[in-house]
Amino acid sequence: MMKDLIAKLKKHYKLTEPDYRRADLTFVTAQKDELRSLLIALRDIEGFTHLVLLTAVDWLEEGLFQLTYMLNNRAANRTLALRVMIPRANAVGDTIHDLWPTAETYQRELREMFGIDFPGSPRVNDEFILEGWTDMPPYRRDFDSLAYSLQTYRERPGRVTHDPREHMKKALYPDQKPEAAK
């Protein structure tokens, strides 16, 4: 069923080779400029009326954000996840709050946690979870949560650990590590 649907969609839209993860779950990458029309077609014609989730994946190394729009056809028990790749720099997505009002919440969160803007989405710049956050959007891969916590919170004093291998070397053969004679 999913194969037929993808074949049908491919006639009108540019889609990459899909990943048929399970019989009821397919991932496919779509073009950003075709997303809206694709979502409407899926919702209104193909029965994918349920927006399961909308979230982002940060492919830092590739300089891309992946937006995942997961849609579900409840009657047929099929889930189709559309990936849209957008550049990380000045990341902007197209708002879909008018298609699914609940998308407003997702887009607000993406704005706050990933720094992806959705112009036109209601209250998109309102604080969602974070209050008074001044650092970079924290769910970006380059936000180092460990460094942040080390710098923000105090480590409990007096904690020291030992690596078994190094500890044994120090105790048993401190100078014997053979290295090519110099």
Binding site: V160, T161, P164, A171
Partner: peptide, 28 residues
């Protein structure tokens, strides 16, 4: 061997010297 320390996702475990290292026992 410190496998307990490795797997601890909370970094709650430190390996501390308790006895002298010997074959197959770090003493930690």
């Amino acid at each position: 061997c410190g496998s307990c320390e490795d797997i601890c996702q909370n970094a709650a475990i430190d390996m501390v010297p308790v006895s002298d290292p010997k074959t197959g026992d770090s003493g930690l």
